[in-house]
Simulated scan of single mutants.
Amino acid sequence: MYWKVGKVKITKIVELETVGSTRFILPLASNEEIRKSPWLVPHFATDEGRLKMSIHSLVVETSARRIVVDTGLGNDKQGRNVPTWNNRQGPFLETMREAGFAPDSIDTVLCTHLHVDHVGWNTSLVNGKWVPTFANARYVFGRAEYEHWRDDREEPDKVAVFNDSVKPVADAGRADLVASDARLTDEITLIPTPGHSPGHMSVHIRSDGEEALLTGDVAHHPCQMAHLDWSSTADFDPVQSAATRRQLFGRFADTETLVIGGHFNAGRIRRDDDAFKFIV
């Protein structure tokens, strides 16, 4: 699946898709509540009100760059807080190659934030050592985000993620720490969107008069556009995350900006009373 934004092409590479089983991340999103927003069906929820979500990467191609935005769960990782995320042996890299994106063809990896399901394929296990998966790439991390997780040693699962999927990149000299509003290319600028994590960033793309927004995890699901106060259990600051949603969605609502989530497909944001809805 891919989208064109001016001269920029965005391709979705799926690692894992789920239907339902998402209450652990969005506890207020009951089947009954979801059915009250019929615009979610069929693209983002089933008729029964079960949420459709995915863990995926987005490959952004410009005339000069080939960028992977977020890198999923990865294989062989341990110490994850979701049992099925441990020691995965999935075909993600093969899927990338089949789509035309060999790992050594990637020149930039951009992580919107450094949570477990956005950094996993940063590294691969080779002869018992974690090494950068994308050997020719610079890895772009938000400085505030990186420094927070580097210095936070209290939660074992997050320590494990940093140690196997982030630190080896820095140790290999492949990491570039940037401001959360940095301009990466003529077409790509970062937007600070804190709340889900301390230094979370979204990605704003402009090309030939067209625009796209890669939200990362500002929202895990479009139902949070209708319910801005439905913060995720994984949010670092639930109050800030709700405020960020209102501000970001308000900025792009009722425009033709193509919006692609960190865990959901593309659409456009429309105002709906005091909140928003998402239209494919």
Rank of each mutant, 00 (worst) to 15 (best):
S207L: 02
D104V: 02
V69L: 11
L93P: 08
P91Q: 07
G128E: 05
P192R: 06
S232F: 02
D272H: 04
W149C: 06
I188C: 09
E48W: 01
A266S: 11
P38L: 06
T95W: 14
L114H: 12
A170D: 05
D237R: 07
C223Q: 01
V59D: 06
E187K: 01
D171K: 12
M225E: 05
P198T: 15
Q78H: 15
A182I: 08
N127D: 15
L73Y: 13
G142Y: 13
N122T: 07
E211P: 05
I25G: 02
R80I: 13
F264I: 05
N75G: 10
V116I: 15
D254S: 07
V5L: 02
D171W: 10
N31P: 01
V109Q: 07
F236V: 09
W121M: 10
H200L: 11
S57H: 10
S197I: 07
I55E: 10
D273G: 10
F264G: 02
V166Y: 06
D157L: 10
R97S: 06
S180G: 13
D176W: 13
V218Q: 02
V69E: 01
R66I: 11
V69S: 05
H221L: 00
G261P: 00
A242L: 07
S165K: 12
K167W: 07
C223Y: 01
L190F: 14
S232Q: 07
S57Y: 12
R183D: 05
D152I: 09
S241R: 05
Y2H: 11
G262C: 11
V8R: 00
D217R: 10
I260V: 13
I106K: 04
A234W: 12
S231I: 03
I34C: 00
D254M: 08
T193Y: 11
R50W: 10
I25R: 08
I13E: 03
T112I: 11
H113R: 14
T193Q: 04
R271L: 03
A243W: 04
V5K: 00
E211G: 02
T22F: 02
E145P: 15
R246C: 02
E32Q: 03
Q89V: 06
E145N: 12
D229R: 06
V178K: 12
E48T: 13
S57G: 15
G20T: 00
V116N: 15
H227W: 03
P168N: 03
R270W: 04
P91T: 11
K77F: 07
S241I: 06
S197D: 12
V68P: 07
T189V: 14
K77I: 06
N136T: 13
D186I: 09
H43N: 14
Q89P: 02
A172I: 10
C223L: 09
T62H: 09
N127P: 03
W230L: 02
V8A: 01
I67R: 05
S202E: 08
L93G: 10
E98M: 06
T133N: 09
V126L: 10
H220Q: 10
V178S: 13
E33H: 00
L58G: 05
T244C: 11
L110M: 13
R65I: 08
S165R: 12
D235N: 12
D117P: 05
H263W: 03
D274A: 08
G262M: 13
E32I: 00
